[in-house]
Design a protein around this nucleic acid. Sequence first.
DNA 1: CCTACCGATCGGTAGG
DNA 2: CCTACCGATCGGTAGG
Lengths: 195, 195
Amino acid sequence: MITKNKLNRKQQIIEKATQLFQKQGYAATSMRDLASYIGIEAASLYSHIKSKEEILQTICFQMANDFFESLEKIELEKSSADEKLKKAVISHVIVLTKDSAASAVFFSEWRHLSESYLKDFLSMRNNYENKFIQILIDGYKEGVFKKMDAKFTVLALLSSINWMPSWYKPEGKLSPEEIAENVTDVFINGLKIRS
Amino acid sequence: MITKNKLNRKQQIIEKATQLFQKQGYAATSMRDLASYIGIEAASLYSHIKSKEEILQTICFQMANDFFESLEKIELEKSSADEKLKKAVISHVIVLTKDSAASAVFFSEWRHLSESYLKDFLSMRNNYENKFIQILIDGYKEGVFKKMDAKFTVLALLSSINWMPSWYKPEGKLSPEEIAENVTDVFINGLKIRS
DNA sequence: CCTACCGATCGGTAGG
DNA sequence: CCTACCGATCGGTAGG
């Protein structure tokens, strides 16, 4: 019972912290802020978490894991590079929109992680980007994509998607699939009418 | 003499603050941090600036003005929508890369502006985005761009470019023009080989 | 541009 | 989960 309540409370703390970190930023959010939104004293937070940074770590590495898992499923499939890219983007958008507040924190507050966590984080991110780069390189080899700077293109592609949490509203008219459809359509086919 | 030295010192303060705001974020950068990098006491900063926020305001509105001015020049030109889009992106990238630290602060720290400044900032940003949206709509009417969600596409396009300050290194091999070339090429023509 | 200092607030601990 | 509290640090001012 006690354990279960503690878990729920911890979850509640992380959820509320996620919202506040997104709105105000990690550094500008105080533990007293957080506590008052939850309805307890600041000191009481420390019965459930070890430190402010632990909350940020939980958010960042949970998101990182979600992104990785979803991409690894795509990698195993046997399909052409353009299909793979499309599927990878859809998965990415689905993870992103499932918790857009956590995603926003993940993308803009990671630099406040302390050194060893920061190192892990950056290496995971690099790894993830490389998987996308590989898909583009494969697509070039298969003759389906044209010659390009694969790393540059992937960073541009991911940036255009990752910025979404800042303006994506779940009440909006676009589903994650439709968003991914729009993004990949522009990136893969371009804006120009085919002649 | 005194006036001139003061102006130089003020510039120096803003430049160093820009670097620190980019690296650590606005909220996590203290005036004591800033002062010690410059080699004076924290209290002495206030001979040159009114407040910490004034520095952020200067950075944000200077960048906003630069972006606006460069886009307004393009708007006056008589050219097709796809050429206009390309030129607009090039101008945008040039402004962005001319001071990538200030750009990074501009894009990620604006939310720390106090209310009235925040309001002005958001309205300027909206205005800027609408100019891009208009170019896409014109392109559709001219028959050069296909049907699409213009707002969505512009936000994706600008996001992919705006993220650049976080990984663009001036020592890198790509010039602003080449970067703009790459971005517009993918966006306008897509990744796929034309059949 | 400095010394001296202000009130407020920070993340976090002790002890119950 | 609370009260009581810690040392550190914050943005900023007074007065020279």
